[in-house]
Nucleic acid binder design. Structure first.
Lengths: 152, 152
DNA sequence: TTAAGTGCAAAGGTTTTGCGAAACT
DNA sequence: AGTTTCGCAAAACCTTTGCACTTAA
């Protein structure tokens, strides 16, 4: 695999943040951080576990969840609770951004559209809430599933 | 309680839709529909169950979940999976609209800000997705919890 | 060396399901 | 009367936790 410098940078940043907080750098954690940095498909805890099992025969699901909990607490991973099946995780980019979710195949893509800050400011003013974060999910059918459907 | 015509209208609409689909009209379902039509606080299944237990000593949580499943399938209730604790349900207004979620007390308010359709159209065009629905959650601290915090 | 992390298995909480009894149409 | 629905209990499912063992610092 050629170097993916974006993923590499993200990986190094995550490792640095672990070090800065004096969390211990274990092989398991490094593997999870690397996978999260490289993934753009928003894997679930189970998926992360599966992928790492080959390389780490002793990897456990508990360790995956515990590491994800640390990352959540650090604000370095977005947890997407979809209401069906497992939660999905975005550690590639922890800054809130919209997600495109295919209701047929479960695929999740990042969207680069920008949510108008006016929307948030207006809502904050009208409600008195101090808004700290947000989440925008767009549900629909991905191009592949559209093709599969029309072909049937 | 004075008549709340908005809630009453919504209740009648839900009952009509059950009839139209030839789903049976049972006292349990009527009670759940009424509660959903009247609620603006996005109750969980457990909450709905509790509230109705007094009036229906034999009400069961399974029936609440089964009725919610029917409503979901009909597209008459929004299910909000928050990732912690129970899912919350909005049957008062099933048209997608933003929610303000207090991360301190769990309160959920409807927001009447409108999500710019351009955002959705742009995301659809860029990704090739056929977008059918969306969800915008704004997380923050509600006025009451802000007050409680500053008072401490 | 020692405090933190791992990994197994068990517990926890929410939601779904199977099935006999009840009840809507 | 014939299905659908109810409601109990059990199962399913995802996630968290307790604890003895291991390991990073």
């Amino acid at each position: 695999m050629l170097e993916n410098s974006e993923a590499e940078t993200r990986y190094q940043a995550l490792v640095s943040k672990f070090r800065a907080r004096e969390y211990r750098i274990t092989p398991q954690r490094l593997a999870i951080l690397r996978l999260l940095a490289e993934s753009t498909d928003h894997p679930s805890a189970g998926r992360i576990y599966q992928e790492l099992c080959d390389r780490f025969p002793t990897m456990s699901l508990a360790t995956v969840y515990k590491t994800l909990a640390v990352l959540k607490e650090m604000g370095e991973v977005l947890e997407l609770s979809l209401g069906e099946g497992e939660n999905r995780y975005d550690g590639h980019n922890a800054v809130p951004h919209p997600h495109l979710i295919c209701t047929r195949c479960g695929k999740i893509l990042d969207s680069d559209v920008v949510l108008d800050q006016d929307v948030i400011a207006t809502a904050a003013k009208a409600s008195g809430f101090k808004i700290l974060s947000h989440r925008l999910d767009l549900y629909g059918v991905c191009p592949e599933c559209q093709k599969a459907e029309s072909g049937e």
